[in-house]
Design a binder for these strands. Sequence first.
DNA 1: AATCGATATTTCCATTCGGACATATCGAGG
DNA 2: CCTCGATATGTCCGAATGGAAATATCGATT
Lengths: 123, 123
Amino acid sequence: MKKSNPTIGLSHLRITLSESFYIGPGRADLMELIAETGSISEAAKRMGMSYKRAWGLVQVLNEGFGAPLIEASRGGNAQGASLTAAGREVLERYRGMQEATRKAIARDVEALGALQADMSKQK
Amino acid sequence: MKKSNPTIGLSHLRITLSESFYIGPGRADLMELIAETGSISEAAKRMGMSYKRAWGLVQVLNEGFGAPLIEASRGGNAQGASLTAAGREVLERYRGMQEATRKAIARDVEALGALQADMSKQK
DNA sequence: AATCGATATTTCCATTCGGACATATCGAGG
DNA sequence: CCTCGATATGTCCGAATGGAAATATCGATT
């Protein structure tokens, strides 16, 4: 399993908020999995990526935005990771944008697919 | 000049049409510059990328879609490159999708920017 | 003090990516 | 037949990417 490039027929939306920060589908999925599992390592496993990579992304997400989006603590029974209030809001908004985009371009995506099919048929 | 990652505050939209083909802002810009200049090398120069990379992208664009999107010929006075009919349609549709997306998520982008500003202010 | 589970961090290494550069190729026109 | 401009293609090499694995750290529980 190398690059399970997802969402065929769909759109990858990346929102660039500053010169050093953006949020895209991968980072959003990671945030969501962290929220679900309460663990960076478990989220990484489910994403099929190494812990190192996931941890690096967490760093970027925390330092790139004005405030931390993910909170992690080690030791004790409070160990694990979760989204901050800002993190939850960013994720929620991003999901909203994804959905809005999907609706806005649905016709065009379909048209492109049809065009591709036509051209392939003619060969 | 390394990575002049553009469109701050805007969105990068990538449309995945098949497992091996997508079109995103960079490829669209390249196609547009090829159409404008009639030359792969000139388009590459204006994009700030090497001819090799631009040529590779042209290959991908021509082989990934069902039909060639770019037509190039060498020698004589007909030398140069231009978009095929399919290429023009793909580009036009992609631009339309970009615009539709921009409109659809404008409010959210603004809200995210505001949130970021607020959080940064509090520090 | 020892254990446990998850985060944090480093080292090592294979692979990929892409730039720079050198050629090769083509076809019209001089 | 030689030049010109642009496409087409290969080679070489440094940088960046990212995985694997080992190790360190933390804090509550036992």
